[in-house]
Design a protein around this nucleic acid. Structure first.
Lengths: 197, 197
DNA sequence: GTTTTTGTTGATTGATCAGTCAATAAAAAA
DNA sequence: TTTTTTATTGACTGATCAATCAACAAAAAC
C-alpha cells in the first residue's frame, strides 16, 4: 500500500480527524488511537507524523486559526466602509464554516487547554490580537479612541460568549441570532462621533 | 485523631481543595490524590465521602452555583429600581468573590466538561436560566419584550465572554473594566421605551 | 467492657494510554 | 539489482490513576 507523498495527506486527515473527535467528545480527552482510527491509520502513524500528542493538538489549533484568518482577510477585502469592516469580522466568526459545533467545541477545549499549555496560549494570543486589530480597523474611524477600544473589547467578549453558549446547549443561539445580537449592539453605539467626544 | 462529625468539614475542605486544584491546573485533569492531598487527607477518604470523582466534581460545581446564587439574591434584595437590578446582577458576577482566577478557571473547566456530562449540563442550565430570569426582572420593565430578551442574551454572553478572557491572560480584564464594559453597553440601550416600540 | 459506628489510610488492582520499536513492504535512487 | 528512503503497523512498555478493600483507631452506644 505504501505510496510516496503521503505526508501532507495524512497530516491533513489527522488534523481533520482531531477536530471531529474533539468536537464529538467535547474535550481534548481524545486518545491518539481514536484520532488515528478516524483518519484510517494506526496510532503509531499519528506519532510518526506529529511526534507527541501535544504537537498534533497544536497543529490542529494552528490550522483552525489559519482558516479563520484566511476567511477574515477575504471578508475584509470586500468591505467598503469602516462599519462594513466590523460587520465583516463579525460575520466571519459566525459563518457557516466557523460556527459549526465541532469547530466551536474544539475552540472551547483549546481555550481551556491554553491555561496549561504555553504553546496554545501563544497561539490564542495571536488570534486575540488579530481579532482586535481587525475590529479596530473598522471602529477607529468611527469612534473616539477610548470608546473604539472599549467597543472592540466588547465585541470580542461577545463573540467568545456566544461561542460558549452555542457549545453548551446544542445549536442555540444559531448563527443568525448571534450576528443579530452583535449587530444590535453596533446599532446602539454612537457611531460617527470620532471628532466630537 | 478520628473525631466524630467530620463529614461536613471534610466535604467542605475537599470541595475547596477541588476548586483550588482546578484553578491552578486550569482544567479538570486533577487527580483525586492531589485534591485529597490539598485537603490534608488521603485519596481513599475523598472516595469515601464522595464516591466517584465525577460526584466530587458535580458537588463542587453545585457549590459554586449555590454561592453565586446566594450572592445574587442578596444583591437583588438591595436593588431599588429595574436598572439597579440589572447592575446588581452584573456586579455580582464580577465581584471580588466570583471573579477570582481559581473560580473562573473552575467555571470554564466545568463548561467544557458539561459537553460530556449530562449532570453538569443540567446544572449549567439551571445557572443559565437563573441568570436570564434575574436579568429579565430588571430589563422587562424598561424595554419592549423582544429587546429585553435580546439584551438579556447579550449581557449573559458578555459575562461568559469576559470570564473566558479573564481566564486566559492572567488578570485581564480586571473586574472594574469588565463591569465598565457591561455598564457602557447598558448606557447605550434605549431604556424606558417599553411602551413606545 | 464489649460492640457498633464513624473516620481514616496504605496497599493493591485493573484499566487506560502515550509513546517506542522492530519489522515489513513498496517505491525511488544508486 | 542492491540500497536507501518513505510509509506503515502490531506488539510492547511504562506511567498514571480511579477505585477498592482490608485493617486500624477513636468515639459512642450498649
Amino acid at each position: 500500500m505504501p505510496k510516496v507523498g503521503m505526508q501532507p495527506l495524512r497530516r491533513k486527515a489527522l488534523i481533520d480527524a482531531t477536530i471531529l473527535a474533539i468536537g464529538e467528545r467535547g474535550s481534548l480527552d481524545v486518545t491518539m488511537s481514536e484520532i488515528a482510527g478516524r483518519a484510517g491509520v494506526s496510532s503509531a502513524l499519528a506519532h510518526h507524523y506529529f511526534g507527541a500528542k501535544d504537537d498534533l493538538l497544536e497543529a490542529t489549533m494552528r490550522y483552525l486559526l489559519t482558516e479563520l484568518n484566511a476567511d477574515a482577510r477575504l471578508a475584509l477585502r470586500a468591505a467598503q466602509t469602516p462599519l462594513q469592516r466590523v460587520s465583516a469580522v463579525v460575520a466571519v466568526n459566525f459563518s457557516e464554516k466557523q460556527f459549526r459545533s465541532e469547530t466551536i467545541a474544539a475552540w472551547l477545549a483549546f481555550y481551556v487547554e491554553a491555561q496549561k499549555s504555553q504553546a496554545l496560549r501563544r497561539l490564542l494570543r495571536v488570534y486575540a490580537r488579530r481579532l482586535h486589530s481587525n475590529l479596530m480597523s473598522g471602529l477607529a474611524p468611527l469612534l473616539p479612541p477610548a470608546q473604539a477600544e472599549r467597543a472592540a473589547e466588547t465585541i470580542a467578549a461577545l463573540i467568545d460568549g456566544l461561542y460558549i453558549r452555542r457549545a453548551l446547549r446544542d445549536g442555540l443561539p444559531d448563527a443568525a441570532t448571534a450576528v443579530a445580537l452583535v449587530e444590535a449592539y453596533l446599532a446602539n453605539l454612537p457611531l460617527g462621533t470620532k471628532g466630537r467626544a
